Simulated scan of single mutants.
Amino acid sequence: MGYKVLTLKHMDEAGHKYLAEHGVEVITSQYDSEEGFLKEITENQVDAIYCRVDKITHAMMDASANLKVIAKQGAGLDNMDLAYAAEKGIQVVFSPAGNAQTVAEHATMLLLECAQRARYVDCEMRRGNFNVRYTLTGTHDLQGHVLGLIGCGRISQLFAHIAIHGFGMKVIGYDPFLKPEMLREPIELRPTAEEVWKEADYVSIHMQSNDATRYSVGYAQFSSMKPTASFINCARGDLIVEEDLIRALDEGKLANAALDVFEQEPLPMDHPFLTRENVVLTPHMGAATEDSVIRCTLSCCEDIVRVFNGEAPVCPAPKHN
Rank of each mutant, 00 (worst) to 15 (best):
residue 158 L to P: 00
residue 212 A to F: 12
residue 145 H to F: 08
residue 238 D to W: 06
residue 236 R to E: 14
residue 224 S to P: 10
residue 201 D to A: 02
residue 162 I to F: 02
residue 228 T to S: 15
residue 194 E to F: 05
residue 150 I to E: 12
residue 216 S to E: 11
residue 248 A to R: 08
residue 235 A to H: 06
residue 164 I to M: 03
residue 204 S to N: 10
residue 172 I to V: 10
residue 213 T to S: 09
residue 212 A to I: 10
residue 154 R to F: 01
residue 162 I to L: 15
residue 214 R to I: 14
residue 256 N to H: 15
residue 202 Y to C: 04
residue 182 M to I: 01
residue 220 A to V: 11
residue 174 Y to Q: 06
residue 223 S to I: 09
residue 177 F to D: 05
residue 207 M to I: 10
residue 230 S to R: 10
residue 141 D to Y: 07
residue 157 Q to F: 00
residue 156 S to E: 03
residue 224 S to C: 10
residue 174 Y to K: 04
residue 243 E to C: 04
residue 196 V to S: 07
residue 192 T to I: 05
residue 238 D to Q: 13
residue 248 A to M: 10
residue 143 Q to E: 13
residue 191 P to W: 00
residue 172 I to W: 03
residue 181 E to N: 10
residue 204 S to E: 05
residue 134 Y to S: 12
residue 167 F to D: 02
residue 201 D to R: 01
residue 180 P to H: 04
residue 187 I to K: 01
residue 145 H to Q: 14
residue 149 L to R: 03
residue 145 H to S: 13
residue 259 L to M: 14
residue 196 V to C: 07
residue 191 P to H: 00
residue 243 E to Y: 04
residue 235 A to P: 04
residue 243 E to H: 10
residue 248 A to E: 10
residue 137 T to K: 11
residue 252 G to M: 11
residue 245 L to I: 03
residue 225 M to N: 08
residue 251 E to M: 10
residue 199 E to I: 02
residue 138 G to T: 05
residue 206 H to M: 11
residue 241 V to I: 15
residue 230 S to D: 13
residue 188 E to Q: 13
residue 156 S to C: 07
residue 170 K to E: 15
residue 231 F to Q: 12
residue 146 V to L: 05
residue 206 H to W: 01
residue 209 S to N: 15
residue 142 L to G: 03
residue 212 A to K: 15
residue 212 A to E: 15
residue 202 Y to S: 03
residue 210 N to I: 05
residue 153 G to Q: 08
residue 164 I to Q: 01
residue 168 G to W: 05
residue 169 M to F: 01
residue 158 L to N: 02
residue 222 F to G: 06
residue 199 E to Y: 05
residue 200 A to I: 00
residue 197 W to G: 03
residue 216 S to K: 08
residue 223 S to K: 15
residue 252 G to W: 12
residue 176 P to N: 08
residue 244 D to R: 06
residue 228 T to I: 07
residue 221 Q to P: 01
residue 232 I to G: 08
residue 200 A to E: 02
residue 222 F to P: 09
residue 239 L to G: 09
residue 232 I to A: 11
residue 245 L to D: 13
residue 174 Y to A: 04
residue 244 D to L: 05
residue 193 A to V: 04
residue 172 I to Y: 02
residue 242 E to W: 07
